[in-house]
Nucleic acid binder design. Structure first.
Lengths: 336, 336
DNA sequence: GTGAAAGCGCTAACAG
DNA sequence: CTGTTAGCGCTTTCAC
């Protein structure tokens, strides 16, 4: 392995100069050229460990989320990467192996080993020992959609989104509005479904309607589950509209309606949350989240804190209604 | 920041002993306990940079794939993580920002900075300078489904899979078998679609049938594209079966058939590739790949090379036919 | 089983 | 703009 000293010799300068030239610090053009030539000639590759050790920084940040494979979390990842890449930072991912039973999220050893300069946590409410350690070390931590004491939060207004979705339905004249909500096991990391249920109920109450518990069905976060939940909901005395906790659930409902011969949106309106990449294809009305932007923001906050000592101030994520063809006025009501 | 020397003092031992105790090397039980107590008391967190520098290893491996968000690649990621986590390794991900135009995959700086001990590359055929550098440094590289000179390959038998899918259809009596194949732009990293086309054609030829180019439609790797491709294919003089390059494409075709009033499988059989997590829900017959296993294998190979100096020997990934309800005998042909 | 000491390769003062 | 030098915090011979 060729080290910086060898490069220095070949270039006829000191190691300090090589270091400076390579890190974009003050160096004459001529010197820089010589250094670069030597680097090229020798195939020199800097040791990041040595560099990090000397600097006290690793230029690596971590990302952890319950399910890296899920659309939402991988979109966040994408957003983070984009922000980091231009800053020359690396991304270390931690996928908790035991996401279901979150008692004991085993975040890999690196969290213990001081390997990252900052951490982004999505949808995990439980601070593990590892995370506590990070906080102790004064590393910036920003969470997306979850609350961790000592961390900066980009908050997701689940109640607001659910309310907006439900209000859209109400504004179309619907009064019997069903809800397909994702699972909230006691141990689950995210209270998301609880809050969305609340948003649904609040919107109805505000409109002088009642949140009928019989119009609620429990689902998982997938199509299959949405399909079955919807089939139940669409039995006797069915609702004229359904609000689903996610687009995948909503699409399941869409397919269920189709199989039952119920026309969407003429006989049944359906709205989801996410603006999942398949939502457009299905013509699904939805409350769009912008996870890529969320990830990007999280990374940017951390980078600014790290590089410019900017304070980490909490934000709240944006969302918006996207109307497509799965929602319309209640049957029998004239369009306005 | 508390360092190893402080811990050593508190425990009344030398730094060498602390290091050994913490790394599971020879140390008496009593000593180990003292060290651990001091660590606990002081909140000591080891510096990975220092450790890596001294060791010459980072205990971090990299993973890069064209689209980390896609089902296939995120499954691989999952498999890698599982293997690494038990070994105490970390995972650094590189998502090439410009995956479409793969001329210039900008793998983040870390590849230049000697930050990883090994690399896993999925579906990228182009060796960037960064990857070359890694090879020069003698870091183990294993690819999944792509060929990189100097790297060990876990090969994906795309031809074989396509052939198996098509043969399944043929064995059911189909003779007019359409193909929805994903895009193969000149610059694309993966020749996958080309090979699957070939598998389709070979199977037909072997059976004395002809691969009718008019029964082929170009698609992207998504439902929407599959939907539109299928609609074209299902016009005049339509095939009785369709083989799609991926389950998502196949599902698009499924929905297109439904919208056209064509019953699956009675009037049209459809088979995909992947065993995507929604395939079961749609009753889709498919050729299952096991990306999690592939990722796991890749990581295991690298770990064994790193830890036990085991040779990196190429493997080939397994696949299998999973018959569900989207395929059946050709219309008018009695079931056998 | 344990201690002393010599690096690992780079960066950041500090001087010049 | 550039050279000298003192670490950064840990691991690993080599003795004992």
């Amino acid at each position: 392995m060729v080290d910086i000293a060898t490069v220095a010799q070949h270039a006829g300068v000191s190691t300090a100069t090589v270091s400076r030239a390579l890190n974009g610090k003050s160096a004459s053009d001529k010197t820089r050229r010589k250094v670069l030539a030597a680097v090229e000639e020798l195939g020199y590759v800097m040791s990041s460990s040595a560099s990090s050790l000397a600097r006290g920084r690793t230029r690596t940040i971590g990302y952890t989320a319950p399910y890296l494979g899920r659309w939402y979390f991988s979109e966040i990842l994408q957003g983070i990467e984009t922000a980091l890449i231009t800053a020359g930072y690396d991304l270390l991912v931690y996928s908790p192996q035991d996401a279901a039973n979150q008692r004991d999220i085993t975040l890999p050893t690196s969290l213990r080993k001081n390997v990252i300069d900052g951490l982004i946590v999505a949808s995990i409410d439980i601070a593990t020992d590892n995370i506590h350690t990070l906080q102790t070390l004064g590393k910036p931590i920003v969470t997306i959609g979850s609350t961790l004491t000592g961390a900066t939060e980009i908050s997701i207004d689940d109640i607001g989104m659910a309310q907006m979705a439900t209000e859209h339905l109400i504004s179309l004249g619907h009064t019997r509005i069903g809800h397909l909500g994702a699972d909230t096991t006691p141990d689950a990391t995210f209270r998301l479904s609880e809050r969305r249920y609340q948003g649904w109920a609040t919107a109805l109450t505000n409109a002088g309607l009642t949140a009928d518990p019989t119009l609620y069905r429990h689902t998982d976060f997938d199509m299959q589950s949405g399909y079955h939940g919807a089939k139940q909901l669409l039995g006797h005395h069915r609702p004229t509209a359904i609000f689903a906790d996610s687009d995948e659930i909503a699409i399941g409902a869409l397919l269920a309606a189709r199989d039952l011969g119920i026309r969407v949106p003429d006989e049944l309106s359906i709205i989801g949350i996410d603006n999942h990449n398949t939502a457009e294809f299905f013509g699904l009305t939805t409350i769009a989240q912008h996870p890529t932007a969320q990830g990007n923001l999280a990374a940017t906050l951390i980078l600014n804190a790290l590089e410019n000592d900017e304070p980490l101030i909490p934000r709240t994520a944006e969302f918006e209604l996207i109307v497509r063809s799965s929602t319309t006025g209640v049957p029998g009501t004239p369009a306005h």
